[in-house]
Design a protein around this nucleic acid. Structure first.
Lengths: 189, 189
DNA sequence: TCACTTATTAAACGACTGTTTAATTTGTTT
DNA sequence: AAACAAATTAAACAGTCGTTTAATAAGTGA
């Protein structure tokens, strides 16, 4: 290497990223110490600084790129509600969960701007493109807000009313709410 | 005073509570240092420990009691959506905001249990009592989730699509989404 | 094996955290 | 004014934070 530029090992950098994603989604940004992340990755703390510059740099590299909903946009939009609600409820809480990382990092002022940019480009825009009718962007925002609010209340806070003992036959409240926004029934009249 | 019990001044305790509420709702639980709260209240840090025991005790005394929606349940439920959406958008960001405090403290494991209890008793239960139709509790949870998600995305993250350049004539996406849950159109059929 | 670069680590830095102890001011009563 | 309790403060505690520096280990080509 010519001068004092940083030297990297892709294997180690990935291990740090994986550990950071797990920790950020399970404990949030503020409560995730760099030493805890480094221990989880099996490396020394100093490597985080060398590879990602700072804690903020690590978060920016770890979380925002994972925020997308492409896995939800394939398929007919007439079944978006049930499809989204099903996947939302089937997610395992173990490991990394982008939505939980988003919710638990939102309070931090250093994370919010990057989250906003990523959500605008990777969630709102592609989702709005699949919505018919008026105010597609605003409705896409409402869909994102509804899903995030559901996770905030059910997984982060632990509200049990949302777990809804509904039988497999009836549509869940989440599916109904989401589909209504997709269909664009603005209730005029 | 007989023995070593604590001595309190209601005026000072209130000043601390007011400062704590402001700080918790604007900066979140983790990012709110006790010294910053004490400075905002114009008192010494040690007084917080003497009056509320710990940072957790201060939060429990400050935020959970303010979580209620009685101000939204007076009036016809047929206009709940527009009423809620209007108030949600008219709130000033200055001062104390219970919903923002809730969102920004949710990531902290010491806050979540108390928030859950307060929301169950002071939001879900009274709201469900005003809902007709099936699954009132689950739908009450969805209403809370929708409002919280809206605030999370619009006020905390700053998603602008939700600010919706909608004219005053058309109903906002938030109002439509909320009213749909209230009406209980589960879309069966 | 030697030299050299890459990769990783141990250790320390100053700053800040929540909490506690002891000293001091303020206010009231005798 | 003297005595006492109530209320507040300054200072220190041990711990953790993100970050940086210097030393060590691992890997590679000559």
């Amino acid at each position: 290497m010519k001068s004092g530029s940083t030297a990297i090992s892709a294997r180690t950098a990935d291990a740090i990223l994986v550990a950071a994603r797990k920790r950020f989604s399970s404990h949030g940004y503020d409560a995730s110490g760099l030493r805890a992340i480094a221990d989880l990755a099996g490396v020394n703390v100093a490597l985080i600084g060398r590879y990602f510059g700072s804690k903020e740099g690590l978060f920016l590299a770890a979380v925002p790129p994972t925020l997308d909903i492409s896995w939800l946009l394939s398929g007919p939009m007439s079944e978006f509600g049930t499809r989204a609600a099903t996947i939302m409820d089937m997610r395992s809480i173990r490991g990394f969960d982008p939505m939980l990382a988003l919710i638990r990092a939102a309070a931090s002022p250093v994370c919010a701007p990057a989250l906003k940019t990523a959500l605008d480009r990777q969630v709102i825009a592609p989702l709005a493109g699949r919505l018919d009718g008026v105010d597609a962007e605003a409705r896409a925002g409402m869909i994102l807000a509804t899903m995030a609010g559901y996770d905030l209340m059910m997984r982060v806070i632990g509200i049990e009313a949302l777990r809804g003992g509904v039988g497999a036959q009836r549509r869940s409240s989440l599916a109904a709410a989401l589909q209504h926004i997709v269909d664009g029934d603005t209730g005029r009249g």
